[in-house]
Design a protein around this nucleic acid. Structure first.
Lengths: 202, 202
DNA sequence: AAATGCTCTTAATCTAGATTAAGGGTAGGC
DNA sequence: GCCTACCCTTAATCTAGATTAAGAGCATTT
């Protein structure tokens, strides 16, 4: 039996709060945001972006969980990022160049996002240059996270990376399939299973 | 015998060219840039940033080569990024939070950079909001590169990663020590030596 | 010129994690 | 209710790359 979760039409308040924490917004700016961002529900396993398509929306996750991944030449899936409540996700390479993406973004659970289209974001930058700064800061934060992730991937073994994952996404470990976590950590599900087992028996 | 390379006082023209390609600048903006960015020469092995210090400059490389790296708990060095001519480098995490960095930035060769101080950059954003956008785009580009690097690190074996390194830094392979390349690729110098040997004998 | 460091190479041995394989658990569709 | 499709686990075997060790080539310093 399928449930019919309704999209909360007031979900933009969450986004406005988010922006306001970074920089106070005027009422006009708030209205601009409300008019440009559209709520949308994705069901589990639906795609926000499929490889080969151009990524032309920028997504703010209101509730649920998304994963962004690529599939390499040998067919292995690598999850770059999970996005849960209050996170941003998009393939910025494709979004800003408007060229086809090599990445997929998929709903791991039923997920509500607020989306802004590429052209609307450019328009937002023009109408309210404050958003140039807000999005600069957003991207800076993503970059910092990505750098940490790279360092961890290079420097730590799988056990430590798993502990870090648990710290970074404390709510996620029991919510999503093991295979996704393994693919995020860059190991096989079998090996993750072994690690988990070791942890419990200690 | 030490050489005394002079810093080219006209080096800001290179930076102005760089900015102008992204967005046309007015004469006032150009002057602002010229006044805010200071040229500085670092000798081979000098540090632009040492772990524990706050990163309070943003660097544009005019000539030479820098490496940014961290040292993990077990004492292994991991190079996150090389920066050669026309690249930007800084620890953005430390720079924007003004907290001590865990990273080092070191000159691999005698290197000339143009530096802007943290407060001057903020001031530049205020005086010429255009730079909010310019730096947003810069950071976006860094993020895209970092993402590609993460994917390669997760998805490809060392041989393929080495080929990619050669493509991305074609001039670097013969300029810098093998140990640095290995540390960038996330392998030991011994193993890199083996890979190189295989390539030649094929 | 000798000495002190780096850097590179080769080769033997070792280990984290992959691969393969098999069995069991559980949810959703018919 | 059963069936199919996932998902998780355990265990045996295998491999990319690490570690250790040792020697040789250069460059810097004294």
């Amino acid at each position: 039996m399928e449930k019919k979760p309704k999209i909360d039409q007031t979900s933009t308040t969450l986004l406005l709060e988010y922006f306001s924490k970074m920089m106070p917004l005027t009422d006009e700016e708030k209205e601009l945001v409300a008019s440009k961002f559209q709520p949308r529900l994705y069901r589990k396993r639906q795609f926000i972006l499929q490889e080969g398509d151009v990524c032309n929306v920028f997504n703010f996750v209101v509730s649920g969980c998304l994963r962004m991944y690529n599939i390499d030449e040998s067919g292995t899936t690598h999850i770059i990022q999970f996005a849960i409540e209050n996170w941003w996700i998009s393939d910025k390479g494709s979004f800003y160049s408007q060229k086809p993406s090599a990445l997929n973004i998929e709903a791991v659970e039923d997920t509500t996002v607020l989306q802004i289209k590429h052209d609307d974001l450019l328009d937002l930058y023009v109408k309210a240059p404050k958003f140039d700064r807000i999005f600069r800061v957003l991207v800076e934060n993503s970059l910092i996270k990505m750098q940490e992730r790279l360092l961890q991937n290079m420097g730590s073994d799988a056990r430590i990376r798993y502990e870090e994952f648990l710290k970074q996404y404390p709510t996620l470990a029991n919510r999503i399939p093991n295979t996704h976590i393994a693919s995020f950590l860059g190991i096989t599900p079998e090996f993750l299973s072994k690690i988990r087992n070791e942890r419990v028996s200690k």
